[in-house]
């Protein structure tokens, strides 16, 4: 190293940074910040756009659904199961509250009104749509839903009881805007 502290090119002895180091670091940080700011809009453009978000809630009149019947509505491109449970089904779900489950949850927290169960109809394993909405479809050993892809079985509360799925069927955010109209999302 040179004897003197700084050459015209800014080389310095010892620990102290040089003016060149300073310029280099400042330029590099500004560049990095600029590059990150430039990338941001590109990545952001791939997130849901305003028109997609605008369609993110729906209202459903559940008064039309007879007891024992179930309907499927589309919400955010996914099926939502709404089942009008019979008293027997509710009783069975409540009875099983203490059973050995992967994702223990009481039935009362899964339905705002016990007779209407509202669930996102997507298997929590790998995203297939479980069967069980129609009478002719298999409902699995627990009387709820049966996923044909990998054999997951859900009970009458939509809780996972058997099979590879790790979680219960998701309960979407919803509220009753009137006695029979549910707003999902």
């Amino acid at each position: 190293m040179a004897d003197h502290a700084q050459t015209p090119h800014g080389q310095a002895t010892g620990e102290q940074g040089t003016r060149r180091d300073f310029l280099f670091l400042t330029a590099a940080s500004v560049t990095a910040f600029g590059a990150a700011s430039a990338v941001w809009p590109f990545v952001s453009s791939m997130n849901p756009s305003k028109d997609v978000l605008a369609l993110s809630s729906i209202e459903v009149d559940v008064g039309q659904v007879a007891e024992g019947q179930a309907i499927t509505v589309k919400w955010r491109g996914k099926p939502v199961f709404i089942r009008h449970r019979t008293a027997a089904e509710i009783a069975e779900a409540v009875k099983d509250d203490g059973a050995d489950m992967k994702d223990p949850q009481k039935d009362e927290v899964r339905a705002q009104k016990p007779e209407f169960l509202v669930l996102v109809g997507v298997c929590t394993h790998l995203g297939c749509i479980p069967l069980g909405q129609k009478d002719a479809e298999p409902k699995g050993q627990f009387g709820g839903w049966y996923c044909p892809c990998h054999g997951s079985m859900y009970d009458t509360s939509g809780r996972i009881r058997k099979g590879p799925a790790p979680l219960n069927l998701e309960v979407p955010a919803y509220q009753y805007v009137s006695d029979t109209v549910v707003k999902i999302g």
Partner: peptide, 9 residues
């Protein structure tokens, strides 16, 4: 109008 930063792109 709707896509995030779509105008910019």
């Amino acid at each position: 109008r709707d896509v995030n930063y779509g105008w910019l792109l």
